[in-house]
Amino acid sequence: MLTLTHYLIVSAALFAMGIAGILIRRNILMILLAIELMFNAANLAFIAYARAWADLGGQIAVFFVITVAAAEVTVGLAIAILLSRQLNTLNADEVSRLKG
């Protein structure tokens, strides 16, 4: 029997994986992917809570989050293309013109 706690544990694990991915991965596309994981952790939590409260508000929230995440990845990929054109790299460690 799956209870609310199980879903929340998976959600927290997804969120932690997202943060770990951002910290460990150096490719910008992978970092964007890890950020998506963080958003989807929130989505899973929303859905689980919506079920627990028998409230549709949480499910509606998920649609907003999906939209925002899609917009975020669109802008992110566009800037990543500009970056690879200008600097010929998508490695986060090599993108460091600005320092001080």
Partner: peptide, 12 residues
Amino acid sequence: PRSVEAGMKYLI
């Protein structure tokens, strides 16, 4: 490149 890099860092 500095503007694009700033945009990428801001976005992430």
